[in-house]
Amino acid sequence: MIQTENLTKQYNGFTAVKDLNLKVEKGDIYGFLGPNGAGKTTTIMMLLGLVRPSSGKVYLLGEELNPRNVDVKRKIGVVSENQYFYREMTAREYLEFFASIYRVPGVSDRIDELFKAVGLFNHQNKKIGAYSKGMQQKLAFARALLHDPELLILDEPVANLDPTSIKQLRDLIEEENRLGRTIFVSSHLLSEVEKLCKKVGIIHQGRLLAEDDMSTIKRRLSDTVVLTVEVDKEAAPHLEAVRDLPFVQTVETTSNIFTVTLEADRDYRSDLSRALFESGCVILSMKTKEMSLEEAFMTITQQNISLLTAQEDKS
């Protein structure tokens, strides 16, 4: 469905995307994960032929990308990060306009069906300018699905949405995938990609750091666990007692709080509790710190560097 070969984009000496090799199979929900500024939107713009790559190739639906080949574009639906509309139109007029551009048969029924699916049926005759952000995002989904595309490209599809709308759109994406549509989701939200996607590519500073099944990626990200432990006294004097434990990788103290990085091969929380108790501390709370996306990228990056170093040592 989507394949890129050494896709690169440079802007005035700055490399936005470097040697990107993606492969999205038919029927996938592919998560394209990366922090803001990682090169996700540039990649999507190149996939759509709206930004000319500096080098490399893009294949969409089995054909090499040619921005003038509008037949391929008719099979793609896109929801962008920012929503742009003709705000003076009503939502229904807007969909009718795009239906005419895509030459959608049975327009009226199709539009009704989509308004019902995204929950805007009762607001279809309102001017888009009066729509909330969430409603606009839903309308963008309806527009993207209007012509029954084979491939859906979603750039940060749930950013700025309330939890109910996120759930609604997530269900819609899953339903569309069940109907056979291939879905490419770009996001900086690890949790969102985790809930939706079967396969994930992680991009950071324009480079694809990892591309694998979600489960494999999760394993790679969970080599360590970070705990914050609050005790009843100043933590610093008890630092040695924790640092000497064999499963502890790093430990930091602030006031009465320890921040401890542990190996994740098994659950060491009881061992840590015992060590702190023996050192004379009473534990007030112990929390597992969720790995932030930045930390996840750092982990993956470190793993890649280690892998490269190991390969160089071998050769």
Binding site: L50, V70, S80, Y84, I101, Y102
Partner: peptide, 14 residues
Amino acid sequence: EHGTLEVLFYGPVT
């Protein structure tokens, strides 16, 4: 400026 051109070009508009 309004981004509507980008949306048109997602589809079969050249």
